[in-house]
Nucleic acid binder design. Sequence first.
DNA 1: GACTGGCACTCGCTACATTCGAGTGCCAAT
DNA 2: ATTGGCACTCGAATGTAGCGAGTGCCAGTC
Lengths: 337, 337
Amino acid sequence: MALDERKLDVLRAIVEDYVATHEPVGSKALVNRHALGVSSATVRNDMAVLEDEGYIRQPHTSAGRVPTDKGYRLFVDRLSKVKPLSPAERRAIERFLVGAVDLEDVVHRSVRLLAQLTRQVAVVQYPSLARSSVRHLELVPVSTTRLLLVMITDTGRVEQRIVELPAPRPHEDVTELRRQLNAKLAGAKLVDTPPLVQELVEQSQDNAMSALAVVLLETLVERHEERLALAGTANLARFNALDLAGSLRPILEALEEEVILLKLFDEVQTGSALVRIGDENEVADLRTTSVVSTGYGPGSTVVGGLGVLGPTRMDYPGTIATVRAVARYVGDLLSER
Amino acid sequence: MALDERKLDVLRAIVEDYVATHEPVGSKALVNRHALGVSSATVRNDMAVLEDEGYIRQPHTSAGRVPTDKGYRLFVDRLSKVKPLSPAERRAIERFLVGAVDLEDVVHRSVRLLAQLTRQVAVVQYPSLARSSVRHLELVPVSTTRLLLVMITDTGRVEQRIVELPAPRPHEDVTELRRQLNAKLAGAKLVDTPPLVQELVEQSQDNAMSALAVVLLETLVERHEERLALAGTANLARFNALDLAGSLRPILEALEEEVILLKLFDEVQTGSALVRIGDENEVADLRTTSVVSTGYGPGSTVVGGLGVLGPTRMDYPGTIATVRAVARYVGDLLSER
DNA sequence: GACTGGCACTCGCTACATTCGAGTGCCAAT
DNA sequence: ATTGGCACTCGAATGTAGCGAGTGCCAGTC
């Protein structure tokens, strides 16, 4: 059954009111607060239909209506208008992100900014190693049998590992190893390195190089370790019993699992925001929450994801706008370095 | 007024029971569960004295007794016996920490381990830059006018910053700059570097060196940036209304403030644990919690702090034992690299 | 046929009264 | 000094009643 225009207006009004007040909204209140041009009785009839169709529901018989996940979904897809950021918000973003000294700093600042602006839990993924390229590889002799291998990526990430050499090496040799490494690998995408590393080992015939290769492949590529920053968990406590049905604990637990958080960014793209509402989340513990995520990176490429998480009852238009704006700034910042 | 031996026994029993049950403990229950050898009436008299002295209190007139901060303090100082770790716990610690590939990994693993073992919020500080020495400084040319300065410390921390050169430089020059930097600074304590950097600038008369010096001093020394890892915030939700009087929010907020967390480690030493109970905390938002912290580092030096935070009603002997044990393992791990 | 005013009904919430029992303080007896 | 006994306190749990926001439905109107 098709929903006519007015029923959609009613749904929109319910979502907006509920998000604003956090209380089930009744037919009379709706008519008062929105110029719908019809009586409360009519609204009640519309509500009955919306409820039949599963867009809203009653917490208990004599209460007002509350949007369901399906209702929010319709709202997000068809009913909400894009809410442009206020100039104040734009300025806040710029002021906050300018002056970040390194990648660590950029990520930290953005995640806090995001949490602050949306008043929700924010997650920012560090630029994914899998999607980065090698800028430079550095070898630092720690002793004659140990090297520190440092990899610097084009996105500013720095990873280091200790490499145990099979036999002692004078420091001069290290210069040559470094030269070979960089000649072969600098500029290459991390995902493309395994065959290159293989070639290196075969060419050099040097057992030190084999040791290096093992470390490179094992820890930097195969087990490409993602990192995350999290902020604003305190915002979860604002709701607690209210919305999340006292289920704060499992949510906090889920937020500590990197694997779970990374899943949030699985299908992100740069430019458009991905919204997962309530049950649409794969992770059971997050079924009472919604996630708004997007990708970021220089231009329209994706080097990482970021987003926020909050109760399904959230200001979707505002949140989406903020998430996208922050992602754009972060992407721009990255391309500068 | 002096508390005789039995009154102390009563206090100890109250603390232990309250920690175990989370409920105010009455005189009868006490006599049943502990072989005190006296009647409940006697215990009641003792309780009255303990209450006068401020060691315990009644939540309301007809309820049992609950230890006060002062009561916990006395318990920690004089009444609790050290609780040795179970072999299972020792094994857990070893298994968990062995196989950490780099500093990041060590810190992450320890903080999660600590949260898991104590079932509380755990905080681990990265080795403090202020307390580390320079192992090596690396310069990576990014373009002819930009260098990436990478500092590696003896504790395994790696910090990097972009340096803008006043004038373009050929790559060969960089080698010389690097040599000079390391010759002067490698091995020096970070706190001792400022005069050395000054000397470098004067000796070299090179404006590139001046640019480097500015970055070195400004971002690596003056603003010596500390880092932290946090885990187990979900454990806070286990209590919530129960103990923390619904004050979860401010605590979560405090936990997101690095400055506040760092204060927890202000006076730590390696080897002994520092316990701050309730009101003894300087930060107002943490007055309902207790913090058990200690320092870690190779031998008996302190390069960083770690600890846990939980409700004042916590298992102090167990927590103290765990915190110290983890700190020792982390310290040992660090001296290996 | 769509909308509306009116009305009976539902049911969660609040307030108030009552009961129950764990725990206390005190006292006289040992 | 310790103890058994006892009156007392007060929070928690349970029960009852009234209120009111909100609903569903129906008959009437445009």
